[in-house]
Amino acid sequence: MSSFVEIVNLEKTFRGRGLSKKGAHSFTAVDNISLNIERNSVFGLVGESGCGKTTLSRSVLYLDPPTSGEIKIDGIDLGSLSTSRLRNFRKRIQIVFQDPNSSLNPKMSIENSIKEGLYNLGYASGETGRRQKLDQRVDELLDLVGITPGHKKRYPHEFSGGQKQRIVIARALSVEPDFMILDEPVSNLDVSIQAQIINLLIELKEKLSLTYLFISHDLNLVSYLSDRIAVMFKGQIVEAGTVEDLMTPVHPYTMKLFSSIPGINRIDEEQDLVFHVEEAGYSEGLPEGYCFYAGEDSEAKVEMLEINDGHVVACFKDNRIERRKL
């Protein structure tokens, strides 16, 4: 049985601009990533800034076509589609960005923003009373996300951040997608508003049987709502599994990441100041695509290893024994 979203050996390399030799400044943002997302599930993607998670999401949407690799959604290979068919297919995948302020055109009333999607979908085209049907659909969509339909003539600046994010979600839903990429959808919102949006997203997922790729740096949030989580580090996925799997991490980076989650223990001030390696050196970076923690072995590429049913890790060493000792 195949998954809803299948990503196979995806790679995205950016070539540097400038007068230097070709490839001299190339940078691999996404390096040989494979993952599967089941229908109607939430797939959490975590990692720190610059790890390539946003590049990955843009590649999945084919806004930036990947350098190599394959993306299949519902069995259709996006790379094989012609430009116009891709444009049509893309409506099935929608994206919600972090910053609701830049996600809405300030010169367009929210009604028109939502209608843009409906027109592209060809909603009720050719039918009599199309205008009424469009208006009705806009009201429905706004109602779905908890915005008073009576406010649809207003412009984005008349709404608060949380409301704008709701409108962005309504706009995404206008083209009836089945897959949504949520790129840090709540991190720009106030704490007391975040929970509202998260509840809304979960509700919509159940109601419209959506599939989510949820990208975030907030580990608390990702472990709250994901069915599966993948941890990204320097363009690669170093560990993936269910939330329970990752609660007992195997890869040293996952361990470090999950032990940094705030809100669990009080920081003990007597504790020695641990000085981490990546802070010692300048940010020149390491050889691309090799395991940062492997040390001497770092000349070789790491392979993904399934250590448990569905729990995969990319590491030379099986740290489970070592970790138990700690």
Binding site: S160, S192, A195, L221, S223, G263
Partner: peptide, 24 residues
């Protein structure tokens, strides 16, 4: 109280988050 309850974490999985209605 509500603010503390509305913060998501793994322990609250499957449960609806407490929300504070309205806007800031």
């Amino acid at each position: 109280k509500l603010l503390l309850e509305s913060v998501p974490d793994a322990a609250k999985r499957g449960k609806k988050l407490t929300t504070i209605s309205g806007r800031v």
